[in-house]
């Protein structure tokens, strides 16, 4: 925006330009007295000019929606618009996607917890594969960082899930696009594996170091759209003498992850264990790491057994209502629960 287009008197305009104030931004940081000196006019006149300038800038902001009162700030409208246009990472289980509002969201920290053997790692691996589904197939076409603190990531299983995902894409292709040219394998399973950056962590010091290093790593490796930590808990459940230190370390890590999610527009998924909590005379199951940690994540999903079926329950979410949905762990990965399909059909 140029000074020449400002609705001020021609003499003022000329003085401004000849004094070197050619753009609006050059006027934003100057003090009125300095400007009065430079232009050799009275301070009252200067204040008039600055009033016009700030009014003009305000109009610009609303028109462009790009600049803000402060750097980096956004209006609620901008954020809503962005959220509506953002793509979620599917869990490959449509019932679960539905209660999550489409899947795992970018720019958010999602915590998933459950008892051993419920399928936390399976869901983690599934997401590391699904984030790579190309945009043509409604995915993000991104890459994944998998931080394994427990040693449960199995390459055999990951390539099995990747193969099933590639097959599904091929099937989708042949259904949707009849032309033979499009019916080719876009992504061999090997490529899926190459796009998973796997860190194996053995102490909590290593875990903190890697979380601190992530920003640099993501800067160097574009297209990373998901960071999965499996699990956030393991190394923090050893004998920590100083529980206050543990809380500080954990909340520091949570803040860093939250910042990464915002800055690089990526999803952060933290897997957590469950523990028993003594409450009013009985033991109850809760996610590990205590009450202050509960604030660390945007969304919390609890996985549990209901009879012989696995269920996921939204425990905390700013935008989705509490709901639960069944899912199944199959040889091809996370899928809809088979018995649920029957129920839907019956109705």
């Amino acid at each position: 925006m140029e000074v020449s287009s400002l609705p001020i008197s021609a003499s003022h305009r000329g003085k401004l330009i000849s004094a070197g104030y050619s753009s609006l931004s050059s006027l934003s940081s100057v003090s009125p007295s300095k400007l009065a000196q430079d232009l050799k006019i009275s301070e009252n006149e200067v204040l008039e000019i600055l009033k016009v300038v700030s009014a003009r800038k305000w109009v610009d902001k609303i028109e462009n929606r790009s600049h803000a009162i402060m750097n980096g700030a956004q209006t609620a409208w901008d954020i809503l618009h962005e959220e509506e246009s953002s793509i979620c990472i599917t869990t490959s289980c449509s019932d679960l996607d539905e209660i999550l509002g489409g899947g795992i969201r970018c720019k958010e920290v999602t915590e998933i917890g459950g008892v051993p053997g419920i399928g936390k790692t399976q869901l983690g691996i599934q997401l590391a594969v699904n984030v790579q589904i190309p945009a043509d197939y409604g995915g993000l076409g991104g890459k994944a960082i998998y931080i394994d603190t427990e040693g449960s990531f199995m390459v055999e299983r990951a390539s099995q899930i990747a193969e099933a995902c590639a097959e599904d894409m091929l099937e989708y292709n042949s259904l949707l696009r009849k032309d033979s040219q499009a019916c080719r394998v876009d992504k061999p399973p090997k490529a899926f594996m190459d796009n998973i950056f796997y860190f194996r962590i053995c102490t909590y010091t290593e875990q903190i170091a890697v979380v601190n290093y992530l920003e640099k790593f993501i800067n160097e490796h574009k297209d990373i759209k998901i960071v999965i930590i499996d699990s956030i808990t393991f190394h923090f459940r050893q004998e920590f003498e100083d529980m206050a230190l543990r809380t500080r370390l954990l909340s520091g890590m949570a803040l860093k992850l939250m910042k990464l999610a915002k800055k690089f527009n990526l999803a952060v998924v933290l897997l957590n264990q469950v523990t028993t909590k003594y409450n009013e005379g009985s033991f109850q199951l809760t996610l590990a790491l205590g009450d202050s940690w509960a604030h660390a994540s945007t969304n919390r999903i609890i996985l549990y057994w209901n009879g012989n079926e696995r269920y996921a329950y939204i425990d905390k979410s700013p935008s989705m209502r509490s709901a639960s949905a069944p899912y199944a762990v199959t040889s091809r990965g996370i899928r809809n629960s088979a018995s649920n399909c029957k129920r839907v059909k019956l109705m």
Partner: peptide, 16 residues
């Protein structure tokens, strides 16, 4: 020991 040393990439195709 640096954090980048903990990265295992590319992944092996099989666990021993």
């Amino acid at each position: 020991m640096k954090p980048e040393d903990l990265l295992r990439h590319p992944l092996p195709t099989q666990t021993p």
